[in-house]
Design a protein around this nucleic acid. Structure first.
Length: 351
DNA sequence: GCAATTTGACCCTG
DNA sequence: CAGGGTCAAATTGC
């Protein structure tokens, strides 16, 4: 089997380590706040999340998890490009799939980009004019009537495609059986820096207005998403459940525990609508969280039962709601196999 | 005036 | 060859 080496820049690695370290600290604080009398499930959840974070840190930086006798087995995640049917270069040169994405960009050859699908239901008060904003700015480049479909399929690509070479695209298809539901197929990762990621003073005025519109949309947005990562090789499905979003412009949604089957994990929307996987940096884990924030839930319930919480975190946060999505590497899940092993030399893992 | 959207034609894939 | 995906000129909107 081919072993793909994944390259990650020093800055990104540092960023990830920083984020995970922060997450670890917040989790510890939460653990302390809960105290020993906390609900067992909650404590277990924290333990597992903490374990995942520590393991990730260990993989990235070599920082060993602190000795924990109850530490669950680390989830085996392989970091491999997950482009569909990866094209073999004609010349046989060892391009990464990311390179392939780039070189294929301006040809008319159909791209084989990372691909996953979400089903998004739009509530009535939003109207049915279109799918909810996902935080990124898209430009529509085509619309097509699809055979046996009542509604046309819209084709979108990242607004920053030309400027920043971002190859992210999405297709939006309204479902025949449920017109209030959109099937959104995302292709490729965002490699751009969205304007909303910049400091307020750096943001373009027009874009500002658009972002505000997005906030309104997101604030009224109720969704039930089925996220299916098509490249996982196995059919893993994640259900996203939300209550209505309603938070002030400067706030971050607070994920709240929905203690259903103990298999929920949480992601958050950043103030500028970016669905961040940095679940740990949300106010939920911060002692400084403003109480004025309204609660919102992004509970992910994995339908398959083989994965425990740490796997859930890995699958969901790394692959769909994560800032990692914007990084120059893919993470693919492999079916969990007991006995599969991690490289022990994590320092060379990304090199 | 510029940026986004629409739409018909063209291209690619199965 | 049919259907889906992309391009790019024309149109629309801010």
């Amino acid at each position: 089997m081919e072993k793909n080496s994944t390259i990650i820049s020093w800055e990104k690695k540092t960023f990830i380590i920083s984020e995970l370290t922060s997450a670890k600290e917040h989790l510890k604080q939460l653990d302390m706040h809960l105290g020993p009398s906390a609900i067992t499930n909650g404590k277990l959840l924290i333990t597992k999340i903490l374990s995942s974070v520590e393991n990730s840190l260990f993989m990235l930086s070599g920082i060993k998890p602190e000795g924990r006798s109850d530490q669950p087995q680390m989830t085996p995640i392989t970091l491999t490009p997950i482009a569909q049917s990866p094209p073999r270069s004609v010349t046989g040169s060892p391009h990464s799939d990311y390179d392939s994405d780039l070189t294929a960009d301006y040809s008319k050859k159909r791209k084989t980009l990372t691909r996953w699908t979400e089903k998004v239901r739009v509530c009535d008060q939003m109207g049915l004019e279109g799918p909810p904003d996902d935080g990124y700015s898209w430009r529509k480049y085509g619309q097509k009537n699809i055979l046996n479909a009542n509604y046309p399929r819209g084709y979108y690509r990242c607004t920053h495609r030309n400027v920043q070479g971002c190859l992210a695209m999405k297709q939006v298809q309204r479902l025949d059986e449920d017109p209030s539901t959109f099937n959104i197929t995302y292709r490729g990762r965002h490699t751009c820096i969205q304007a909303s990621h910049l400091l307020p003073g750096q943001q373009h005025k027009k874009h500002d207005q658009k972002q505000n519109k997005s906030k309104e949309a997101i604030a009224n947005f109720q969704t039930s998403c089925h996220v299916k990562a098509e490249n996982f090789g196995t059919t893993q499905q994640v259900i996203l459940r939300t209550s209505s979003f309603s938070f002030p412009s400067s706030s971050t949604a607070i994920p709240c525990m929905e203690n259903e089957s103990n298999n929920n994990i949480f992601c958050s929307w950043t103030p500028d609508n970016h669905f961040m996987g940095s679940l740990f940096s949300s106010p939920f884990f911060s002692p400084t969280a403003s109480e004025s924030n309204n609660l919102s839930t992004y509970g992910h319930t994995l339908q398959t039962s083989e994965y425990d919480v740490s796997e859930l975190i890995s699958a969901a946060s790394l692959n769909m709601c994560s800032p990692f999505q914007e990084l120059d590497f893919d993470m693919a899940m492999e079916p969990i196999q007991s006995g599969s092993k991690y490289p022990t030399d994590s320092s060379s893992f990304f090199d």
